[in-house]
Design a protein around this nucleic acid. Structure first.
Lengths: 225, 225
DNA sequence: TCTTAAAGTTTGTCGAACCTAACTATTGAA
DNA sequence: TTCAATAGTTAGGTTCGACAAACTTTAAGA
């Protein structure tokens, strides 16, 4: 039974390592709001426990065992977010912080009850895929909005959930999961992306666009719906 | 912000002190599963923080400040129990342990959302009164079943929630909140109480009877319902 | 009153998880 | 190649909450 703190370190490494990039002390420290010596100490411990491999001065990488912990936490986090959103009608910009705490303390039994209550869902309110109970981590759907070509239309399938401010910004734009967006133009030199969303035009910055993933509509014949 | 551990000590003292009885080191230690020196140390700290008053060798008593913490926890606990019971349909013998953890970590905002979602309820699934947000602790309803006179009929309004085994025992008897029980006979020498419950007769031990509270039906004229 | 068992406290330790200060390794620019 | 600047680690300290061992107080019975 890893402690709350250990779980948080593993989760952070998981988030930072993306597709198997080594993760560095400094980045873990910055991301968690602790000082580097705390990270060094904990990393040594996590390596001894087999959660990650550590090459001194060269960063860390989660082992299978560590990844399993991280994916389980993600499953918990996303199910809790969906549960709070569905039952208490809490908006998507307010569920993350509660879930952040609850993911560490809710029993497996309760999580599975929630999973069944929600109808064994596949996605959380931000469109993130919910990992399986077996630790199977499905791929993200779609592609980032900033990689969509001009003239293409996409359906919003996923948005980043870490920054409530960003989610409120999207809400203000009336952009939600399922929204259709047409990319009209990429402004040059890192400028904004010009979009059409539900008959309104808008410009969206690159940083924001990168946090939105869309499914490109394939033009396979002409079939509505 | 008291720590989890501090909250647990305060809660334990609250439960043990009943109607302002001094609570002793030994009893706190036994109830919490820690050793006496741990209690001595923590009690000193709690007294310094103003949560309780401590006369060395003579036990402790919560201050107003300590009682407030305890009652807030009770409110959280009972709302969480009711929430789990209502939304996830978790039976009354399985909600206590999850609530025990969650009461310490769920934000006030979330608790108030739950409170409103549940329709600002007055009682939890075991019939316990839910304290007000203002720290107001309502009295228990009814009287313990073992104090009911022979021949009297009562309506079950509250049962102890600490022991899941006991709750499963009640479930087996088909005894629930709202059940009507007729006390037929008190067996002598601490023997069982003979009851009639929904056209079945049963004997219930004194220890169990003390954990069940009933409202005595007053014979005010003859009015059904 | 004296004695002793039970209850309570004090003292010193330990592990977790953090910190600061001081030291070491890596790296990229001069 | 050398040497800062940056990154990482080690050493040593703090706080929190638990513990065991040793000591003190209380209270009950001889």
């Amino acid at each position: 039974m890893p402690s709350r703190s250990i779980e948080d370190y593993i989760k952070t490494v998981y988030e930072l390592q993306g597709k198997n990039q080594r993760v560095f002390t400094k980045d873990i420290a910055r991301s968690m709001g602790v000082k580097m010596p705390s990270v060094s100490g904990m990393v040594k411990h996590l390596a001894a426990e087999g959660y990650l491999s550590h090459k001194p001065y060269k960063g860390v990488l989660l082992t299978k065992r560590g990844q399993r912990i991280a994916v389980d936490l993600l499953r918990r986090h996303r199910l809790i977010e969906l549960f709070l959103n569905k039952t208490l009608d809490i908006p998507w910009d307010e569920i993350h912080e509660d879930a952040e705490v609850l993911e560490h303390v809710i029993s497996n039994k309760l999580i599975e009850r929630i999973f069944n209550f929600l109808g064994r869902p596949k996605f959380d309110p931000h469109g993130h895929t919910i990992p399986g109970k077996d630790g199977n981590m499905p791929l993200s759907r779609g592609i980032p909005l900033d990689q969509v070509n001009e003239g293409e239309t996409g359906c919003v399938v996923e948005v980043s959930d870490h920054d409530p401010e960003f989610l409120r910004y999207l809400t203000g734009l009336k952009l939600k999961i399922g929204s259709e967006v047409l990319v009209k133009e990429h402004a040059p030199f890192g400028g904004p992306i010009m979009l059409k969303l539900e008959r309104q035009s808008l410009a969206i910055g690159l940083d924001a666009a990168r946090r939105i993933r869309v499914d490109i509509k394939k033009k396979v014949g002409k079939r509505s719906n």
